[in-house]
């Protein structure tokens, strides 16, 4: 089987190689791809949308519709992971495990306690618990705000430098994931609950689609941000720029929440109690 598939794959590769003969040279500035549609983007972006980062302009405006669905794809993945993995039956074994902070004695409870033991004395731990590592925990808690700020920066500066909603969203999500990794999943959940992630991912995409629908409501075509100019008291070109910005916000929100959602479900096998 392996050999057959190897032969097949090699054969296929050979065919592909043969087809590259008709390609324009790599990096040729006169290749069809470089002279047909893209020149307009390069030349007109600034005057049409006032966004120097052409990729952002094309991504969120010229081909903003694609991007809306790209965000929807992420959202879909989040919902899919939730749907596939989330389950509410408790993990086999003791319901809860606490550790007495002073002595290190570990208490297992078969059933959920009526009253949560005080956090000062007892700390709830996972059943595959390892002691928290002072260095990692502290470094991460110091780094996380910076990472988050950086994520927000990336979202906000998508117009002028590489980045934008998606990258920023991933960075934001990664910061929460980092928290879950360095501390534990419960801590991360305490900051960003399951429902919050679920809602935020939907709301993020909703912002995107909502901006588009708003354009529709203003009597223009879907996602034609120019229509939003009168609402924001700016000229159409800046309306496009602002429209792109709002849309990127939505993307960022959705992506962040979704990444966290997926991580939570993957790492805890859908029980959201303890993770990697």
């Amino acid at each position: 089987m392996k050999l057959i598939s190897l032969a097949l794959v090699v054969l296929l590769g050979g065919l592909f190689m043969a087809a590259t003969a008709d390609f324009p040279d790599w990096g040729d500035p006169a290749s069809p791809a470089s002279v047909h549609v893209s020149p307009r983007y390069i030349e007109k972006t600034m005057e049409e949308t006032s966004v120097p980062n052409i990729v952002t302009a094309v991504l969120a405006d010229y081909r903003g519709y694609d991007t809306m669905f790209e965000t929807a794809v992420v959202f879909t993945a989040g919902v899919a992971c939730f749907l596939l993995l989330r389950r509410r039956d408790p993990r086999p074994g003791p319901e809860r495990i606490y550790r007495h902070q002073a002595t290190g004695v570990i208490v297992e409870m078969r059933h959920k306690p009526a009253k949560e033991p005080a956090g000062e004395v007892f700390a709830r731990i996972d059943d595959d618990w390892v002691p928290h590592d002072l260095i990692i925990m502290n470094v991460c808690r110091l780094l996380i705000p910076f990472i988050q700020l950086f994520g927000l920066y990336v979202i906000a500066h998508g117009h002028h430098s590489p980045g934008g909603g998606f990258q920023g969203g991933v960075i934001l999500g990664a910061s929460i994931i980092l928290l879950a990794l360095s501390w534990d999943l419960r801590t991360a959940m305490g900051r960003l609950s399951e429902a919050a992630t679920g809602l935020m991912s939907a709301v993020g995409v909703f912002i995107y689609a909502g901006v588009g629908a708003m354009c529709l409501a203003m009597g223009s075509n879907f996602l034609d941000y120019e229509a939003l100019g009168p609402l924001m008291f700016v000229d159409p070109v800046h309306a496009r720029s602002l429209g792109i910005f709002f849309v990127e916000l939505g993307v960022g929100l959705a992506v962040m929440a979704t990444m966290v959602l997926i991580y939570k479900n993957l790492a805890s096998e859908g029980r959201l109690d303890q993770g990697l």
């Binding site: 929807a72 959202f75 919902v79 809602l199 909703f206 689609a209 588009g212 075509n221």
Partner: peptide
Amino acid sequence: QHFPALLVTAPLLCALLVSIAGWLR
């Protein structure tokens, strides 16, 4: 004249609303 947009975006928007409703109601 916006039917083509509605055709796709109406379900999309509603999917998002469904998701939100799934958490709340």
